[in-house]
């Protein structure tokens, strides 16, 4: 640790130059809430830390001309959580961001950091994936844009080349009659997710599902899209049977591991439960957004809402071992 040099560039060009000097030994620093622990635990060969927080162009949430959003990689989780327009258009992302640690963490942790840390359990990742986010990456050669799923190689590994930086996440415009939701299972509010899931749906004028996306976290080496579930619900009305099918397909897509937090079997089972809840709540929100009547078809959604489909509800209903009340 003694031979590390701290740099705080104020422009992206300067940051890329610093990263390019000695890529193997240079670590970009965003919020630092993960990096600090990695430094403490040692085993790294970092000689330079490049703090990105002074680069104004990397922060902030902007509305694109097409109605989508560009979220700077250095935007705080707390800002994502509380951005009024973003939360209205993409509630799944606001819910996910609100689950990253406690307030002191969310005042420091960044969206780009959460993505680049590449934890399969990261709470912003299933929402971003289900919402169709793209990653904007800058390097010495210029800028490229890729689907977010292509940014992750494995647990804690990205496909970023040495010297490259994630600069922003780009969200498409929210669909008409659309809704999204995030669900999560933990022992306590501050704990890492055992399983998490996010869904987005768009309804047609009849209230049938025109298009859907489902993403699962903490059940595979990387956060997963479940295209089989998206396929299965297309063109159909939401119902208890459909919820059961989504659950079955999500469980089948999961490839979880046994670890200290939960067994693989339990995770597989819960992946189905959370997937169905996320989808039910997304449908509910899409109906509210599109003014589609809920009478007669609200069974599945209503039930799962009682079971606590909102992100933090789990934590609130089940005060954990260590979480605040």
């Amino acid at each position: 640790m003694h031979d590390v040099t701290y740099h705080a560039p104020t422009s992206l060009a300067e940051a890329l130059r610093l990263l390019g000097n000695d890529p193997a030994h240079t670590r970009p620093l965003a919020g630092g809430t993960d990096l600090h622990l990695q430094m403490e635990r040692g085993g790294n060969a970092w000689r330079h830390v490049v703090d990105l927080k002074r680069i104004a162009e990397l922060a902030g949430i902007a509305r694109n001309p097409d109605g989508g959003y560009t979220i700077g990689a250095l935007t705080l989780a707390a800002e994502v959580e509380s951005h009024v327009d973003l939360a209205a258009d993409y509630p799944a992302l606001a819910q996910g961001a609100a689950c990253i640690g406690g307030p002191p963490i969310r005042n420091r942790a960044t969206l780009g950091g959460n993505v680049c840390n590449a934890s399969p359990a990261a709470d912003s990742s299933p929402p971003l994936l289900a919402l169709g986010a793209r990653a904007v990456v800058a390097g010495a050669e210029g800028t490229r844009e890729l689907p977010l799923a292509d940014l992750w190689r494995g647990p804690r590994q990205t496909t970023l080349a040495p010297g490259e930086l994630l600069t922003a996440l780009r969200l498409p415009p929210p669909p008409v009659r659309g809704g999204s939701a995030f669900t999560r299972l933990t022992r306590s509010a501050m704990d890492i997710a055992l399983v998490n899931a996010a869904a987005q749906v768009a309804l047609d004028a009849q209230g049938h599902i025109a298009q859907a996306a489902l993403a699962l976290g903490a059940v595979a080496p990387v956060v997963l899209l479940v295209p089989q579930a998206a396929e299965a619900v297309r063109g159909r009305a939401w119902s208890a049977e459909l919820a059961a099918e989504v659950a079955r397909l999500a469980s089948a897509a999961a490839q979880p591991i046994d670890d200290i937090r939960a067994s693989a079997d339990y995770r597989r089972e819960m992946a189905g439960v959370l997937a169905a809840r996320a989808m039910a709540q997304a449908v509910e929100r899409a109906r509210a957004a599109g003014g589609v009547a809920t009478a007669g078809t609200s069974g599945a959604a209503g039930k799962s809402d009682k079971a606590g489909a909102t992100g933090k509800a789990t934590a609130r209903q089940r005060p954990g071992r260590r979480g605040a009340p």
């Binding site: 701290y6 620093l29 630092g32 809430t33 600090h36 703090d51 005042n107 420091r108």
Partner: peptide
């Protein structure tokens, strides 16, 4: 913020 997760230089 948690001061244990911040370098003084930040």
């Amino acid at each position: 913020v948690d001061s244990c997760l911040i370098f003084a230089l930040e």
